[in-house]
């Protein structure tokens, strides 16, 4: 029997830790992946994803089933990512993902098993991913977050509006501008026109 996130959350608010564990299992990959793309740092992404779930538990008694759990969860993750970016700007370390970290990233990705015996292909794909991540990191925070939520997390504009606490019209314009900026960034790094998407 499938229990909805909202019902699990109510049980969690009553102190049921197995309900909480089930929620973590359901969303751990999506949240780690989402934060990773937003802040471009795998290890920090894991830390912040853990913090996201702990905040869910901390505020479980305050949760009202009128709000969708998923949106609430992404709101917490988004706020933590924004804080991380803000602190990073303060420390003057913008999205510097060194090669050691990115190498570790690739081992967490499912493609590792697919192309293990084809090192050239793996390297090519890895380099391409790095270029795209870098281009994405050049977008303004809100545009990157909105685009990530729509493209990778496959959320609707309504859901993104709730997470970013803005109107659906504002999300529409954010996504439009994000794609325009992304296009310019990709042209700048040389994969604007003819990237081989089948790799």
């Amino acid at each position: 029997m499938f229990v909805s996130d909202e019902d699990l959350m109510i049980e969690c608010g009553k102190g049921d830790m197995s309900a909480f564990e089930l929620l973590v299992r359901r969303y751990q990959d999506s949240i780690v992946s989402y934060i990773h793309i937003t802040i471009n740092d795998y290890h920090r992404a894991e830390d912040l994803a853990q913090e996201t779930f702990l905040r869910v538990l901390k505020n479980a008694h305050r949760y009202k089933p009128t709000a969708a759990f998923k949106n609430w969860l992404y709101t917490i993750a988004t706020n933590l990512s924004r804080n991380e970016i803000r602190n990073r700007v303060r420390r003057n370390t913008y999205f510097i993902e060194d090669m050691v970290k990115s190498e570790e990233d690739i081992y967490h990705s499912p493609i590792m098993t697919d192309v293990r015996n084809q090192p050239d292909l793996l390297l090519e794909k890895k380099e391409q991913q790095q270029i795209i991540k870098k281009a994405l990191s050049q977008l303004p925070d809100n545009q990157r977050i909105a685009l990530t939520l729509v493209t990778y997390q496959e959320l609707s504009y309504d859901e993104v509006a709730e997470i970013l606490e803005c109107t659906v019209g504002a999300v529409k314009s954010l996504i439009h501008r994000a794609r325009q900026n992304m296009k310019n960034q990709l042209i700048k790094v040389g994969i604007g026109g003819n990237v081989n998407v089948k790799i």
Binding site: A49, S109, V197
Partner: peptide, 30 residues
Amino acid sequence: HIDNTLRLIEPIKASENFINVVMSKTNTVN
């Protein structure tokens, strides 16, 4: 084309001990 390019970034999975770390940290929250 932009969307297809963006989707080249593979989704990343949480590490195997992610759930254990979260559950071990819940005591303070409780």
